[in-house]
Amino acid sequence: MAVQQTGGEAQQDAEVRELAERLAGGDLRAVARAISLVEDGTPLGWGLLDRLYPRTGRAQRLGVTGPPGSGKSTLVNALAQTLRERGERVAILAVDPTSPFSGGAILGDRVRMTAATRDPDLFVRSMASRGNLGGVSSATYEASEILEAAGYDRILIETVGVGQSELEIVELADTVALVLVPESGDAVQVMKAGIMEVADLFVINKYDREGGDRLVRELQLAMELSDWRRGGAWAPPICTTVATRGEGVREALDAAERHFAHLRGEHQRLTQVRAQKMQRRLRMLLNRVLLRHAWRDARIEDQLEAALARIAAREISPYRWVQEVLQSWRRQGEEQDG
Protein backbone atom coordinates (compact mmCIF):
# COMPACT_ATOMS: atom_id res chain seq x y z
CA MET A 1 0.00 0.00 0.00
CA ALA A 2 2.73 2.41 1.03
CA VAL A 3 4.72 1.56 -2.08
CA GLN A 4 1.70 2.16 -4.25
CA GLN A 5 1.12 5.51 -2.64
CA THR A 6 4.70 6.60 -3.27
CA GLY A 7 4.38 5.50 -6.87
CA GLY A 8 1.20 7.56 -7.17
CA GLU A 9 2.88 10.58 -5.67
CA ALA A 10 5.85 10.31 -8.01
CA GLN A 11 3.52 10.05 -10.95
CA GLN A 12 1.59 13.07 -9.76
CA ASP A 13 4.79 15.04 -9.37
CA ALA A 14 5.72 14.20 -12.92
CA GLU A 15 2.29 15.27 -14.17
CA VAL A 16 2.49 18.51 -12.23
CA ARG A 17 5.94 19.24 -13.63
CA GLU A 18 4.88 18.55 -17.18
CA LEU A 19 1.75 20.67 -16.94
CA ALA A 20 3.66 23.53 -15.27
CA GLU A 21 6.21 23.52 -18.08
CA ARG A 22 3.59 23.53 -20.82
CA LEU A 23 1.76 26.30 -19.00
CA ALA A 24 4.87 28.44 -18.75
CA GLY A 25 5.54 27.85 -22.44
CA GLY A 26 2.23 29.45 -23.33
CA ASP A 27 0.29 26.27 -24.12
CA LEU A 28 -3.33 27.42 -23.85
CA ARG A 29 -4.66 23.89 -23.48
CA ALA A 30 -2.44 23.40 -20.44
CA VAL A 31 -3.66 26.67 -18.94
CA ALA A 32 -7.28 25.68 -19.52
CA ARG A 33 -6.75 22.17 -18.12
CA ALA A 34 -4.98 23.54 -15.06
CA ILE A 35 -7.91 25.79 -14.24
CA SER A 36 -10.29 22.81 -14.45
CA LEU A 37 -8.08 20.78 -12.12
CA VAL A 38 -8.06 23.62 -9.62
CA GLU A 39 -11.80 24.15 -10.00
CA ASP A 40 -12.50 20.49 -9.31
CA GLY A 41 -10.31 20.61 -6.19
CA THR A 42 -8.11 17.72 -7.36
CA PRO A 43 -4.79 16.82 -5.69
CA LEU A 44 -3.14 17.50 -9.04
CA GLY A 45 -4.58 21.01 -8.96
CA TRP A 46 -3.19 21.65 -5.47
CA GLY A 47 0.18 20.29 -6.51
CA LEU A 48 0.21 22.64 -9.46
CA LEU A 49 -0.70 25.68 -7.36
CA ASP A 50 2.06 24.76 -4.95
CA ARG A 51 4.59 24.55 -7.75
CA LEU A 52 3.49 27.75 -9.45
CA TYR A 53 3.26 29.93 -6.35
CA PRO A 54 6.77 31.44 -6.66
CA ARG A 55 5.78 32.80 -10.05
CA THR A 56 2.79 34.76 -8.77
CA GLY A 57 2.52 38.22 -7.26
CA ARG A 58 3.26 40.51 -10.18
CA ALA A 59 -0.02 40.80 -12.03
CA GLN A 60 -2.75 43.25 -11.26
CA ARG A 61 -6.16 41.84 -10.46
CA LEU A 62 -8.97 44.17 -11.41
CA GLY A 63 -12.37 43.15 -10.09
CA VAL A 64 -15.51 44.30 -11.88
CA THR A 65 -18.70 43.97 -9.90
CA GLY A 66 -22.18 45.45 -9.95
CA PRO A 67 -25.86 44.61 -10.19
CA PRO A 68 -27.19 42.29 -12.93
CA GLY A 69 -27.60 44.02 -16.27
CA SER A 70 -25.28 46.92 -15.47
CA GLY A 71 -23.04 45.94 -18.38
CA LYS A 72 -20.16 44.26 -16.59
CA SER A 73 -19.36 41.82 -19.41
CA THR A 74 -19.48 44.53 -22.06
CA LEU A 75 -17.26 46.77 -19.95
CA VAL A 76 -14.80 43.97 -19.25
CA ASN A 77 -14.66 43.23 -22.97
CA ALA A 78 -13.97 46.91 -23.73
CA LEU A 79 -11.33 47.13 -20.99
CA ALA A 80 -9.64 44.01 -22.32
CA GLN A 81 -9.58 45.43 -25.83
CA THR A 82 -7.98 48.64 -24.62
CA LEU A 83 -5.37 46.72 -22.65
CA ARG A 84 -4.60 44.59 -25.70
CA GLU A 85 -4.07 47.76 -27.75
CA ARG A 86 -1.51 48.75 -25.14
CA GLY A 87 0.24 45.44 -25.72
CA GLU A 88 -0.60 43.76 -22.42
CA ARG A 89 -1.45 40.10 -22.05
CA VAL A 90 -4.92 39.92 -20.56
CA ALA A 91 -6.94 37.18 -18.93
CA ILE A 92 -10.59 37.36 -17.97
CA LEU A 93 -12.35 35.25 -15.36
CA ALA A 94 -16.09 35.65 -15.71
CA VAL A 95 -18.26 34.16 -12.99
CA ASP A 96 -21.93 33.30 -13.43
CA PRO A 97 -24.21 31.67 -10.87
CA THR A 98 -24.71 27.94 -10.45
CA SER A 99 -28.32 26.88 -10.01
CA PRO A 100 -28.81 25.75 -6.42
CA PHE A 101 -31.47 23.32 -7.70
CA SER A 102 -29.77 21.45 -10.53
CA GLY A 103 -26.12 22.29 -9.87
CA GLY A 104 -25.92 23.35 -13.50
CA ALA A 105 -25.11 26.75 -14.89
CA ILE A 106 -25.39 28.77 -18.07
CA LEU A 107 -22.22 30.76 -18.47
CA GLY A 108 -23.11 33.43 -20.99
CA ASP A 109 -20.48 36.11 -20.53
CA ARG A 110 -18.69 35.09 -23.72
CA VAL A 111 -21.63 36.35 -25.74
CA ARG A 112 -20.47 39.90 -24.98
CA MET A 113 -16.76 39.14 -25.15
CA THR A 114 -16.32 39.67 -28.84
CA ALA A 115 -12.66 40.67 -28.43
CA ALA A 116 -11.85 37.07 -27.59
CA THR A 117 -11.67 35.49 -31.00
CA ARG A 118 -8.29 34.12 -31.80
CA ASP A 119 -5.88 36.23 -29.86
CA PRO A 120 -3.58 34.02 -27.78
CA ASP A 121 -2.83 36.98 -25.50
CA LEU A 122 -6.45 37.34 -24.48
CA PHE A 123 -7.69 34.40 -22.47
CA VAL A 124 -11.30 34.17 -21.35
CA ARG A 125 -12.57 31.63 -18.89
CA SER A 126 -16.13 31.29 -17.63
CA MET A 127 -16.56 29.96 -14.12
CA ALA A 128 -19.69 28.78 -12.36
CA SER A 129 -20.08 29.96 -8.76
CA ARG A 130 -20.64 26.33 -7.64
CA GLY A 131 -22.50 27.12 -4.47
CA ASN A 132 -20.27 29.92 -3.29
CA LEU A 133 -22.35 32.93 -2.29
CA GLY A 134 -19.78 35.71 -2.39
CA GLY A 135 -20.22 36.65 -6.05
CA VAL A 136 -17.25 34.56 -7.22
CA SER A 137 -16.48 30.83 -7.04
CA SER A 138 -14.29 29.36 -4.34
CA ALA A 139 -11.65 28.59 -6.98
CA THR A 140 -11.58 31.97 -8.71
CA TYR A 141 -8.50 33.16 -6.84
CA GLU A 142 -6.66 29.93 -7.55
CA ALA A 143 -7.60 30.23 -11.22
CA SER A 144 -6.14 33.73 -11.25
CA GLU A 145 -2.88 32.36 -9.84
CA ILE A 146 -2.71 29.84 -12.69
CA LEU A 147 -3.22 32.64 -15.19
CA GLU A 148 -0.61 34.77 -13.50
CA ALA A 149 1.91 31.96 -13.64
CA ALA A 150 1.07 31.57 -17.33
CA GLY A 151 2.29 35.12 -17.85
CA TYR A 152 -0.83 37.25 -18.00
CA ASP A 153 -0.05 40.79 -16.76
CA ARG A 154 -3.57 41.77 -16.07
CA ILE A 155 -6.42 39.67 -14.76
CA LEU A 156 -9.94 40.97 -15.00
CA ILE A 157 -12.40 39.26 -12.69
CA GLU A 158 -16.07 39.73 -13.40
CA THR A 159 -18.39 38.73 -10.57
CA VAL A 160 -21.94 37.45 -10.83
CA GLY A 161 -24.53 40.21 -10.72
CA VAL A 162 -24.50 41.29 -7.10
CA GLY A 163 -27.03 42.80 -4.72
CA GLN A 164 -25.88 44.30 -1.48
CA SER A 165 -23.77 41.66 0.17
CA GLU A 166 -21.73 39.59 -2.29
CA LEU A 167 -18.44 41.21 -1.48
CA GLU A 168 -15.86 38.47 -1.81
CA ILE A 169 -14.31 40.22 -4.80
CA VAL A 170 -12.50 42.47 -2.31
CA GLU A 171 -10.48 39.46 -1.15
CA LEU A 172 -9.50 38.57 -4.72
CA ALA A 173 -8.82 41.84 -6.46
CA ASP A 174 -6.29 44.60 -5.91
CA THR A 175 -8.66 47.13 -7.41
CA VAL A 176 -12.45 46.85 -7.47
CA ALA A 177 -14.59 48.73 -9.99
CA LEU A 178 -18.26 48.95 -9.06
CA VAL A 179 -20.42 49.30 -12.16
CA LEU A 180 -23.72 51.12 -11.77
CA VAL A 181 -26.29 52.41 -14.24
CA PRO A 182 -28.32 55.64 -14.14
CA GLU A 183 -31.30 53.65 -12.89
CA SER A 184 -29.26 52.23 -10.02
CA GLY A 185 -31.19 54.29 -7.61
CA ASP A 186 -31.56 57.20 -5.34
CA ALA A 187 -29.18 58.43 -2.71
CA VAL A 188 -30.78 56.39 0.06
CA GLN A 189 -30.17 53.20 -1.87
CA VAL A 190 -26.64 54.34 -2.54
CA MET A 191 -25.89 54.93 1.11
CA LYS A 192 -27.30 51.77 2.57
CA ALA A 193 -25.84 49.37 0.05
CA GLY A 194 -22.89 47.44 1.40
CA ILE A 195 -21.41 47.11 -2.05
CA MET A 196 -20.65 50.82 -2.17
CA GLU A 197 -17.89 50.40 0.35
CA VAL A 198 -15.93 47.92 -1.72
CA ALA A 199 -15.46 50.30 -4.62
CA ASP A 200 -12.03 51.68 -5.43
CA LEU A 201 -13.67 53.33 -8.37
CA PHE A 202 -17.22 53.81 -9.56
CA VAL A 203 -18.19 53.31 -13.18
CA ILE A 204 -21.54 54.72 -14.22
CA ASN A 205 -22.18 52.71 -17.36
CA LYS A 206 -24.91 53.39 -19.94
CA TYR A 207 -24.25 57.03 -19.15
CA ASP A 208 -26.15 58.10 -22.27
CA ARG A 209 -29.36 57.23 -20.49
CA GLU A 210 -31.38 59.65 -18.47
CA GLY A 211 -30.38 60.15 -14.85
CA GLY A 212 -26.62 59.68 -15.20
CA ASP A 213 -25.73 63.15 -13.99
CA ARG A 214 -28.03 62.79 -11.02
CA LEU A 215 -26.39 59.54 -9.95
CA VAL A 216 -22.96 61.13 -10.21
CA ARG A 217 -24.07 64.01 -7.96
CA GLU A 218 -25.67 61.63 -5.49
CA LEU A 219 -22.54 59.51 -5.34
CA GLN A 220 -20.40 62.59 -4.74
CA LEU A 221 -22.69 63.71 -1.97
CA ALA A 222 -22.81 60.28 -0.38
CA MET A 223 -19.02 60.13 -0.39
CA GLU A 224 -18.76 63.51 1.29
CA LEU A 225 -21.19 62.42 3.97
CA SER A 226 -19.61 59.11 4.80
CA ASP A 227 -16.14 58.24 5.94
CA TRP A 228 -15.83 55.13 3.82
CA ARG A 229 -12.49 56.38 2.62
CA ARG A 230 -11.02 54.33 5.42
CA GLY A 231 -7.30 54.77 5.65
CA GLY A 232 -7.86 58.13 4.02
CA ALA A 233 -5.73 58.99 1.03
CA TRP A 234 -7.81 57.37 -1.70
CA ALA A 235 -11.05 58.93 -2.84
CA PRO A 236 -12.82 56.57 -5.28
CA PRO A 237 -13.13 58.41 -8.59
CA ILE A 238 -16.41 58.35 -10.49
CA CYS A 239 -16.06 57.43 -14.17
CA THR A 240 -18.79 57.51 -16.77
CA THR A 241 -18.92 55.11 -19.70
CA VAL A 242 -21.00 53.84 -22.59
CA ALA A 243 -19.23 50.50 -22.82
CA THR A 244 -21.08 49.32 -25.96
CA ARG A 245 -19.48 52.24 -27.85
CA GLY A 246 -16.22 52.19 -25.94
CA GLU A 247 -16.82 55.67 -24.56
CA GLY A 248 -15.02 56.54 -21.35
CA VAL A 249 -13.36 53.12 -21.17
CA ARG A 250 -9.82 54.48 -21.44
CA GLU A 251 -10.51 56.95 -18.63
CA ALA A 252 -11.93 54.17 -16.42
CA LEU A 253 -8.83 52.12 -17.05
CA ASP A 254 -6.62 55.09 -16.21
CA ALA A 255 -8.50 55.47 -12.93
CA ALA A 256 -7.83 51.82 -12.13
CA GLU A 257 -4.16 52.39 -12.97
CA ARG A 258 -4.02 55.35 -10.61
CA HIS A 259 -5.46 53.20 -7.83
CA PHE A 260 -2.91 50.48 -8.40
CA ALA A 261 -0.13 53.08 -8.52
CA HIS A 262 -1.48 54.45 -5.25
CA LEU A 263 -1.26 50.97 -3.72
CA ARG A 264 2.24 50.46 -5.02
CA GLY A 265 3.37 53.92 -4.02
CA GLU A 266 4.32 55.18 -0.58
CA HIS A 267 4.07 53.15 2.61
CA GLN A 268 4.09 49.83 0.72
CA ARG A 269 0.35 49.79 0.86
CA LEU A 270 0.08 46.95 -1.64
CA THR A 271 2.31 44.68 0.44
CA GLN A 272 0.29 45.45 3.55
CA VAL A 273 -3.09 44.96 1.94
CA ARG A 274 -2.00 41.72 0.32
CA ALA A 275 -0.62 40.46 3.63
CA GLN A 276 -3.95 41.17 5.33
CA LYS A 277 -5.80 39.37 2.59
CA MET A 278 -3.36 36.45 2.72
CA GLN A 279 -4.00 36.08 6.43
CA ARG A 280 -7.73 35.76 5.81
CA ARG A 281 -7.00 33.46 2.90
CA LEU A 282 -4.86 31.15 5.00
CA ARG A 283 -7.65 30.83 7.55
CA MET A 284 -10.11 30.06 4.80
CA LEU A 285 -7.87 27.47 3.11
CA LEU A 286 -7.06 25.80 6.41
CA ASN A 287 -10.72 25.73 7.38
CA ARG A 288 -11.52 24.06 4.10
CA VAL A 289 -8.90 21.36 4.59
CA LEU A 290 -9.65 20.81 8.28
CA LEU A 291 -13.35 20.47 7.65
CA ARG A 292 -12.85 17.93 4.91
CA HIS A 293 -10.50 15.86 7.06
CA ALA A 294 -12.61 16.08 10.19
CA TRP A 295 -15.70 14.91 8.35
CA ARG A 296 -13.79 12.03 6.87
CA ASP A 297 -11.85 11.00 10.00
CA ALA A 298 -14.84 11.10 12.32
CA ARG A 299 -17.00 9.33 9.72
CA ILE A 300 -19.64 11.97 10.30
CA GLU A 301 -21.48 11.27 7.08
CA ASP A 302 -22.08 7.65 8.23
CA GLN A 303 -23.58 8.77 11.52
CA LEU A 304 -25.93 11.36 10.10
CA GLU A 305 -28.73 9.04 9.06
CA ALA A 306 -29.04 7.32 12.45
CA ALA A 307 -28.78 10.63 14.24
CA LEU A 308 -31.66 12.08 12.25
CA ALA A 309 -34.03 9.35 13.43
CA ARG A 310 -33.00 9.77 17.06
CA ILE A 311 -33.31 13.53 16.86
CA ALA A 312 -36.75 13.31 15.26
CA ALA A 313 -37.85 10.91 18.08
CA ARG A 314 -36.54 13.46 20.61
CA GLU A 315 -34.14 10.86 22.03
CA ILE A 316 -31.30 13.29 21.64
CA SER A 317 -31.13 16.98 20.87
CA PRO A 318 -29.18 18.29 17.87
CA TYR A 319 -27.02 20.21 20.33
CA ARG A 320 -26.05 17.10 22.33
CA TRP A 321 -25.39 15.15 19.15
CA VAL A 322 -22.98 17.78 17.85
CA GLN A 323 -21.07 17.66 21.15
CA GLU A 324 -20.88 13.87 20.98
CA VAL A 325 -19.48 13.95 17.47
CA LEU A 326 -16.86 16.44 18.59
CA GLN A 327 -15.89 14.28 21.58
CA SER A 328 -15.60 11.09 19.57
CA TRP A 329 -13.45 12.90 17.02
CA ARG A 330 -11.16 14.16 19.79
CA ARG A 331 -10.87 10.69 21.37
CA GLN A 332 -9.93 9.30 17.99
CA GLY A 333 -7.21 11.93 17.64
CA GLU A 334 -5.83 11.11 21.10
CA GLU A 335 -5.76 7.40 20.36
CA GLN A 336 -3.83 8.08 17.19
CA ASP A 337 -1.34 10.28 19.06
CA GLY A 338 -0.90 7.62 21.77
Binding site: T98, G104, G108, R110, V111, A128
Partner: peptide, 14 residues
Protein backbone atom coordinates in the same frame (compact mmCIF):
# COMPACT_ATOMS: atom_id res chain seq x y z
CA UNK B 1 -31.34 25.44 -20.63
CA UNK B 2 -32.01 21.69 -20.68
CA UNK B 3 -28.29 20.98 -20.18
CA UNK B 4 -28.17 23.42 -17.26
CA UNK B 5 -31.18 21.76 -15.66
CA UNK B 6 -29.41 18.42 -16.08
CA UNK B 7 -26.60 19.82 -13.91
CA UNK B 8 -24.06 20.58 -16.65
CA UNK B 9 -22.02 23.75 -16.89
CA UNK B 10 -22.99 25.28 -20.20
CA UNK B 11 -20.77 27.82 -21.90
CA UNK B 12 -23.14 29.68 -24.16
CA UNK B 13 -21.38 31.60 -26.91
CA UNK B 14 -24.34 33.06 -28.73
Amino acid sequence: TAFRDAGFEVIYTG
